[in-house]
């Protein structure tokens, strides 16, 4: 599979990891919700390995739906985790959301760029067990930076 230069370019980092006793809280932001979602997904992969070690060799598409924005975020991250946990064992350094619907229906389609996780090539970070709704917070106000807070269980 070959990729264009644009596809290979990584997005600037707009996330951080916050304190939480047994787990970790992801905090991501962006000018749009779409960007914040992409950043949030990447931050989760960043906890599993060092993102610099990932070469973009493969692209998979995922789809997630939810009843509300929180549900959508939960399922979006759950899909990404699933992509990593079993075939194709994909670890991603770039996410591009191609469809982002809110309103009547909450739906995301996302292209995930990365490669198969290989022990030896990719440093082993922490295993993410699951996504949680605990203290989930989405800042979505007009004319303001969009922010996401999610706790992942590790």
């Amino acid at each position: 599979m070959s990729f264009t230069a644009e596809e290979l370019e990584l997005a600037p980092k707009k996330y951080e990891y916050l304190d939480h006793t047994a787990d970790v809280q992801l905090h991501s932001w962006g000018d749009t919700l779409k960007e914040a979602f992409e950043q949030c997904g990447i931050s989760m992969f960043g906890y599993m390995t060092e993102l610099e070690s990932i070469e973009i060799k493969q692209c998979e598409e995922i789809e997630a739906t939810g009843d509300d924005l929180e549900g959508l975020l939960f399922h979006f991250l759950d899909e990404l985790l699933f992509l990593f946990s079993c075939d194709p064992f994909l670890i991603c350094s770039k996410l591009v959301i191609t469809q982002f619907e809110t309103g009547e229906e909450f739906r995301i389609k996302c292209k995930c760029y990365g490669e198969e996780f290989q022990i030896g090539k990719h440093p082993q970070g922490t295993e993410v067990k699951a996504i949680t709704y605990s203290a989930m917070h989405i800042v979505n106000e007009p004319d303001k930076r969009k922010e996401l807070f999610v706790i992942i269980d590790i």
Partner: peptide, 17 residues
């Protein structure tokens, strides 16, 4: 099915954390 798919490759592994 999702759980089974996640479980299959991981049976007999220690995990992390």
């Amino acid at each position: 099915m999702r759980a089974k798919k996640r479980g299959l490759p991981q049976l007999g592994t220690l995990g992390a954390g």
